[in-house]
Design a protein around this nucleic acid. Structure first.
Lengths: 193, 193
DNA sequence: ATATTTTCTTGCCATATGGCAAGATTTAAT
DNA sequence: ATTAAATCTTGCCATATGGCAAGAAAATAT
């Protein structure tokens, strides 16, 4: 007996009809990524996006001094997509890398366009997902200005506690906008609270 | 003889047919905002968005300590929209205020939905605009981590030189993630380069 | 034109975070 | 199991930026 398809958690029955799901679900292709392999690398144009069924993924940019800056972390249920590259059909400045072995479900741009233009619920959900990413990014951006590093750290481990087991301090630190040295000190302080 | 409609700069003839433009353009309503008036205020749900024909606009958030943090500046040709509030139909955490008298063209949510679902070019342009906002926000976010305040300042006045004539240092400073005191010192340093 | 309010600059010192390097610890490779 | 490599912690000191308050300058109101 088949287990329910992972994607039915993403495209739920209360928003999509049975007929729509029968069109949408088979369009996704199951793809495995080995630990440390790249889903996308700088200079390439994103031709796909993915939903993560299992594993951890990190996106990062390289700044002008060659430093690696984490821009996001993804795990089960998350969409992994470089919005600008995918929709503007332009080379990305980011890298997306598997931190662990991952199982993902992949969709390509042309298929996306067809679904987007023919199924209103798909369109709505796509727009909502993008807007939520925007909202999350703005929250992070404001937090960089309004909060101290320790507050950002607390919030991050509260929202994504499994990160600590899967991501190096260095990678978490750059996401928080600090060095790994400072993060180590912050953790020490945090532990003693 | 009529001057060409301002919105024809936004919805250009190479992307929209004459018929589409005849549907779209009349849906926008011309609205004037007096200096210091609010287009949107915290706690309200965004029911409209606007294209700025003339004037300057600022959006800002209030952080947990009650400090006002500029999140963006807008002027001629820019879209003024709170993406999450408008599309998620949720109360906003931001404020949007006219810094000068402004002439804007306004569209409401229901009309947007109709155009979005019936005109493919409108849909594409809307998505592209959102993705570009996302891209710009990510650039700012990375710059907060990778660059020094003086570099962000240089970039901002290069991209939007008219800001200096229309926005207080305090408001620019919070956008850059620093205090007005520090910005004043940075400007001094910058001037002597 | 004058008064009032707001904005901007500057000095003094405080604080958060960075840079570097040495050890300690953990993880991965043979 | 042993070795090698990567990661994490810690000390010492440097740097970017903040906080506060006073005065200067500019904008606004009467």
């Amino acid at each position: 007996m088949d287990s329910p398809h992972f994607l039915l958690n993403i495209f739920s029955a209360d928003k999509f009809s049975k007929e729509e799901l029968d069109i949408i679900i088979p369009k996704f292709k199951k793809v495995d990524f080995a630990k440390n392999s790249f889903l996308l690398s700088e200079g390439k144009t994103a031709k796909h996006y993915w939903f993560v069924q299992s594993g951890f993924v990190r996106s990062f940019a390289i700044d002008t001094d060659g430093n690696d800056i984490s821009t996001n972390f993804y795990t089960t249920g998350d969409i992994v997509i470089d919005w600008p590259s995918f929709f503007l059909r332009a080379p990305t400045r980011e890298n997306i890398q598997a931190l662990t072995n991952c199982i993902c479900w992949q969709l390509d741009f042309d298929t996306f366009q067809t679904l987007f233009n023919t199924i209103e619920a798909f369109r709505e959900q796509g727009r909502t997902t993008l807007v939520k990413s925007y909202f999350e990014l703005k929250g992070h951006s404001i937090s960089m200005i309004a909060d101290q590093a320790i507050d950002r750290y607390k919030q991050l481990i509260k929202q994504k506690p499994q990160l600590l087991q899967n991501v190096s301090l260095k990678q978490i630190a750059t996401y928080l906008g600090i060095t790994d040295t400072s993060l180590s000190r912050i953790r020490k302080e945090f532990a003693s609270e």
